[in-house]
């Protein structure tokens, strides 16, 4: 059992200025997840008639990408390759002071407390993050052979859960790792190659339009990514972009 001091960002809505508020989390079990710890704090707040802390969460098994908190200056907290929901309290000590903040970036406006609007990421995908295939009328699955290395590399990129930690971690608020993961997932596959050049141009344009910054190769994103998506995919995106330029001339 341990007691913690939380400094949590509270902001009523998008127009509110927002501030840190201090909460004591008492009798926290080591086996709890970080979100279960917040549940306990919220139950107390409700009983006191106060508004609980609003935070995004859903699957609580590290795959939906909903949870989004910067804990002591690190998106998803101190444990590598772990979402907040999979972060357990055994990684904290009695008496710890914990700062909890929302993702911060121009493209992610705050909705309430720790909840931000990440629909900009959806719009990047809508710009071209797909293979333009209609349902039906496709060849047999084994008619498209894909070397195992390519399929594995595509899968490495496709593991992205779209949580936006890369944006939160990036000093430039850039969504390059997110965009690169989708671009490279599809560029590695023969089905995706056909539209690859168009895709990379459309998606990077959309990213800029949404107000994300450019990549300065700080590599903070890879360190913060709960799925360990590699910055080499950003290099890959750049390569695809250059190829697209050369091809179009």
């Amino acid at each position: 059992m341990m007691n913690l001091t939380l400094l949590v960002w509270r902001q009523k809505n998008a127009n509110d200025k927002g501030r840190f508020e201090k909460y004591e989390a008492k009798n926290i079990n080591h086996e709890m997840s970080f979100l279960e710890m917040l549940d306990v704090v919220n139950e107390e707040l409700i009983k006191e008639g106060k508004e609980p802390i609003a935070f995004d969460h859903d699957c609580r098994e590290g795959i939906c990408g909903m949870c989004s908190q910067v804990i002591n200056g690190v998106p998803h907290g101190p444990l590598e390759k772990t979402t907040v929901c999979q972060l357990h309290m055994r990684h904290f000590k009695d008496g710890d002071v914990i700062y909890i903040e929302p993702w911060r970036a121009k493209a992610f406006p705050i909705i309430k407390d720790l909840i931000v609007d990440r629909s900009a990421l959806d719009r990047i995908i809508q710009a071209g993050g797909y293979i333009s295939v209609h349902t039906g009328g496709v060849p047999d699955a084994n008619a498209i052979l894909i070397p195992k290395e390519d399929a594995d590399a595509a899968m490495d990129a496709a593991e992205c859960i779209g949580c936006g930690a890369c944006v939160a971690a990036c000093p430039n608020g850039s969504a390059m790792l997110f965009t690169a993961a989708k671009v490279m997932h599809l560029a590695k596959l023969p089905q995706g190659k056909i539209e690859a050049f168009r895709r990379v141009c459309l998606m990077t344009e959309a990213m800029q339009k949404e107000g994300f910054g450019a990549c300065s190769n700080h590599y903070e994103c890879q360190a913060a990514c709960p799925k360990g998506i590699k910055v080499s995919f950003i290099s890959g995106l750049n390569r695809e972009f250059i190829k697209a330029q050369l091809r179009s001339k």
């Binding site: 840190f20 002591n72 200056g73 430039n172 910054g213 450019a214 590599y219």
Partner: peptide, 20 residues
């Protein structure tokens, strides 16, 4: 300037993980 603009609000605490 563009990058600065994309990150208008700073964190109270920010740990650098890889940035130098």
């Amino acid at each position: 300037l563009e990058n600065k603009n994309a990150k208008p609000d700073k964190y109270a605490i920010k740990k650098s993980l890889r940035a130098t």
